[in-house]
């Protein structure tokens, strides 16, 4: 919990307050057809795919890697599931949907294993290795869907994003469960430390007895699985698979979420809570643009400004400057005796 508080929560809070100022009913949540309904729920629901993709990305980045193929895997998983459902003899049955979902997840695991193979076994730079799938994979998705948008009409499949558990959208429940599970497995067992060790120095950790290769392999498979679940959520949300546009540039948003959350791209240190915060911040930013009514011509500039502000505020030099100003202000009245040691302790981190 203290970990979460040290993360930059303020951009998220500021965005939410901005929304509240424009639209007083922004925090209002009501029940609609047995499901929570409101802007905050939209942020969680629409942010769930990004949050999942960013979670997989966090672990990959922690091993000093990067996965550019996330968006492509999103497109492939939606394409495979929807094409399977649409072309089956019984396109409305839950069994068909389950098979389609299973196929999508299995294929994603195979694609993740391919990335892992290129990176861990062949030692190819992760950015190049995953670029292969990023470029070729969307073509694969288009091949599966034949270049068309595949519309499905399957109650079970629609339920991935349409149904709710105790009034909470299933997407939010799933994302939260995966986050909790990963936090538990990486922080309550040695796995998290091992991932960090691989990220700091793969060779040294291998010599120290860590099975670096298997760990790298595992994180890429996990990232692809997260992306596949995100893809199923995205395509279920509109009951269609759009191989051209689904998950387009999602990998960049995922990387952004990871970085906003304070994980270093150099690998070795990561924060799951930070990533969640980053993903929610990005989604809130998107929702803010829609609800505040920022014209589309300038919305990208607005996004860029917010992101630059967030990073400036996190930059060590800027923080040091702020601290110095605060100290000067504190110095004006007679300084308290304890102020000096507290300040030196603070600047230590």
């Amino acid at each position: 919990m203290r970990d979460l508080l040290r993360r930059p929560v303020w951009p998220l809070v500021a965005l939410l307050l901005l929304n509240l100022a424009v639209m007083p009913s922004f925090f209002a949540v009501r029940l609609q057809d047995g499901r929570l309904y409101g802007s905050l729920i939209d942020i969680l629901h629409n942010g769930a795919p990004l949050a999942l993709a960013a979670l997989g990305m966090t672990l990959v980045i922690a091993t000093r890697g990067i996965d550019l193929s996330v968006g492509t895997v999103v497109a492939i998983s939606g394409a495979v599931a929807c094409t399977w459902i649409a072309s089956s003899p019984d396109p409305a049955s839950p069994g068909t949907a389950l098979t389609g979902i299973g196929l999508a997840l299995a294929l994603a695991a195979a694609l993740g294993a391919w990335n892992g193979f290129l990176v861990a076994r062949l030692g190819i730079q992760p950015i190049i290795a995953t670029l292969v799938l990023m470029t070729a994979g969307r073509g694969l998705a288009q091949l599966v869907t034949d270049g068309q948008i595949i519309t499905v009409n399957n109650g079970f499949f629609a339920g991935i994003s349409g149904s709710a558990l105790l009034a909470v959208p299933l997407t939010v429940v799933v994302a939260a469960a995966v986050y909790a599970l990963v936090a538990l497995v990486t922080r309550r067992t040695a796995l998290g430390t091992l991932v960090e060790a691989v990220g700091i120095n793969p060779e040294a950790s291998r010599l120290a007895g860590v099975r670096s290769q298997s760990i790298v392999w595992t994180v890429y498979v996990f990232a692809a699985l997260c992306a596949a679940v995100a893809g199923l959520m995205i395509s279920s949300n509109v009951n269609a698979a759009d191989a051209n546009n689904a998950g387009l540039w999602l990998e960049l948003d995922a990387i952004l979420a990871v970085v906003i959350g304070g994980t270093s791209l150099a690998g070795g240190r990561y924060s799951i809570a930070g990533t969640l915060l980053g993903a929610l911040t990005i989604q809130t930013l998107t929702t803010t643009i829609y609800s505040v009514g920022i014209p589309p011509e300038v919305s990208l500039v607005f996004k860029a400004l917010v992101v630059i502000l967030v990073f400036l505020a996190q930059a060590p030099k800027v923080r040091a400057l702020m601290r110095r100003r605060r100290r000067r202000r504190d110095d004006a009245p007679p300084p308290a005796a304890t102020a000096v040691p507290a300040e030196t302790a603070g600047s230590g981190r």
Partner: peptide, 23 residues
């Protein structure tokens, strides 16, 4: 009263409309 881009995609249309309906 409101005009926003949905990028010609279904997902975009849905997300923007969700926000419109609330605002």
């Amino acid at each position: 009263i409101a005009s926003q881009t949905g990028d010609f995609t279904r997902s975009g249309g849905r997300q923007v409309m969700e926000a419109f309906l609330k605002t």
